[in-house]
Write a protein that binds this DNA or RNA. Sequence first.
DNA 1: GCCGTTTTCGGCCCGACTGTTTTCAGTCG
Length: 608
Amino acid sequence: MEIGGICPLNSLRRDNLLSMDNSSISKVFADIAVLMQAKGENVFKVRAHSNASDAIKSLPFPIAGIVDDATRLGEIPGFGEAIVEKTQELVRTGRLGLLERLLEELPDGVLELVQIPGIGPKTAVAAATELGISTFEQLAASIESGEFQSLPRISKKSAAQILRHAKMRVDQGERIGIGSAIEAANNVITELKTRCPNISQIEVAGSVRRMSELVGNIDILCSVPDNESAITIIDAFTTLSNVYDVLSHDDKHAVFTDRAGFKFSMYLVRPEAFAGALVYATGSISHGIRLEELAAGKQLKFTSDGLFDSASETLEPLDSEKNAYGRLGLSFIPPEMREDAGEIERAVDDDLSSIVTSDDIRGDLHSHTNWSDGRYSMEDMVAAALERGLEYLAITDHSPSATVANGLKPDMLLAHNAAVRELDQTAGVRLLTGTEMDIKPDGSLDYSDELLADLDLVIASIHSGMDQDEDTMTHRVIAAMESPHVDVICHLTARLLGKRSPVLIDIDAIFAAAVRTGTVMEINASPDRLDLSAEHVRRGMDMGVIFAISTDSHHTWQFDNMRFGVSTAIRGWVESNRVINTLSYSNLMAFLALPKSERYAFNKSRGQ
DNA sequence: GCCGTTTTCGGCCCGACTGTTTTCAGTCG
């Protein structure tokens, strides 16, 4: 590598950097499983591919890194000779003959249609073959015309549910979930830094940095010392391994799309302009306009290249975003709040320090182990929690109704409690016994009051009967909230971000019942869910609801998802003292020891 | 296709729900 901030032009061609990440490899095996099932292949063969897909997803390291070591690959659970060979073919060549053959044999659209809840491989093939449906738009149109209902086993009611999900996908367009977006952005930044090690300041900006739930493109801001470096970085950016089509590029700006059509933009500024430019590039358009107005009132000009003195056109020296906001007469506004939703007015005389941050979180109240459907042992999960500095952790495995999740029957729950209490002696993290208990379709609970009374923490959720009408669903959840033992309602809307529509439920009625019964509402931090939206959370704040932010971890590394939950809370303007897992362990236990009717008052008057 | 093993092939997680349902296939979690 040459000296002076320069990396050689095209020093590495994209072929050399073609490395597939675990999620793309996992998806290939999941796709194969779907297509095999659609073809009617042996169910166990299908399951083997599906298991391989799950195993790859849960690996704590990149599988591409061990692709040449067949022995190590074979040690992955569910990996036999055939799966090892397919993995090697896929990682080495970027393609898989089997997948290509399956796609050729089956009609277009199967992999898209099966993403809609209610449509499995067989129905997808029927819809594609008999009705020529291959897109969500065509699916929606076919249901609206009544044509889709001619397929086997499709009733009016199921068609209505499918239409709801299909319309969501149409509305969503090309946007992707924030979890995938962050992963894609990090991959780009990591590769760019490898190619150009002299990059000193680079940040993702735009809606990704604001942690919007769904994002349509990824904006990256980078600083460069001179024009020569700029050309080098633009060159590297436009030849990254995921570049499919370069839409535009000049000496300070470039845009490309990847194979899926997703857009990546980069903007270059001088180092001294970086802080101001980052503020400009992060906020929503209307947030930016508000800042421009504030700047104009101070004889300043706020642009994509930083903050300038209007008269002299000289750059204002700013070394941080805090500084930039300060120059405009505002407190620092967290990126997640920069939506022009009232945050600017508030930042005039409030330092926003009461808003929850990741540092405030002291424990996690929702996790799974291999006692039910978690991937790791209790000991592994506890070690991972300890590594992340958590003060306490609730082990909340599933209840009996969750049969596929291997829900714990009563005797197993008792054994589970004993195991948690024993591990608590040596864990280094305080452990809470608990359950994630199913709320059954009629609103009844999955364990007896006697069993529930013995647990430190009961979180309850729905996993079945998700197409109930709004009234039934709302009453069902409220019935569970009336129980003196149900501490937290978790993943209330059961949506899967970008994949499954939320259930029909009256959120305001639920929040009112939460306040009335003393029940806590979970902000589920999994980026696949972000189950209460920021809008919901903000409404809950207005109504006085108390929240828990929990990761719902099934894997050790999923504890890192906490930041997605915290970001949702920040987007919803949640105050730190309205989140129970910002309490110390002893205060949390004191909170849980109270009858539910006294808990909201306790929290209101609490210290930290 | 994987796994465990009485090492060469039989078993693999399953219960609930739904449908121009009638004895079962498809889907979900």
